[in-house]
């Protein structure tokens, strides 16, 4: 599975949305499925998927799919 596949799977399972909806422009709280509750699940899914522990600042900053990719880059996960 590529890193993009992993990212889409994490978002899809955490937010319970179709993978086709996971585009760079998708932002936090722009859809009902990505609320503060599912955001916590998303963080857990991403950490599990990539075997990392996200810093709290990064959890707060993860405001879009594009931003998630940028943050994951800091953990040597490239897209």
């Amino acid at each position: 599975m590529t890193n993009t596949d992993k990212l889409e799977t994490a978002f899809s399972e955490a937010l319970m949305i179709e993978k086709s909806l996971i585009i760079d422009d998708l932002t936090y709280q722009s859809i009902p499925e990505w609320d503060s509750i599912s955001h916590m699940v998303l963080i857990s899914e991403l950490e599990s998927m990539f075997d990392i522990s996200l810093d709290t600042e990064d959890v707060i900053d993860m405001s879009s799919v594009l931003k998630a990719k940028e943050i994951l880059n800091k953990y040597d996960i490239l897209f």
């Binding site: 916590m40 699940v41 963080i43 899914e45 599990s48």
Partner: peptide, 10 residues
């Protein structure tokens, strides 16, 4: 608790 919760959310 912060780390445990992230683990338990799975």
């Amino acid at each position: 608790c912060q780390f445990a919760v992230k683990n338990m959310l799975k």
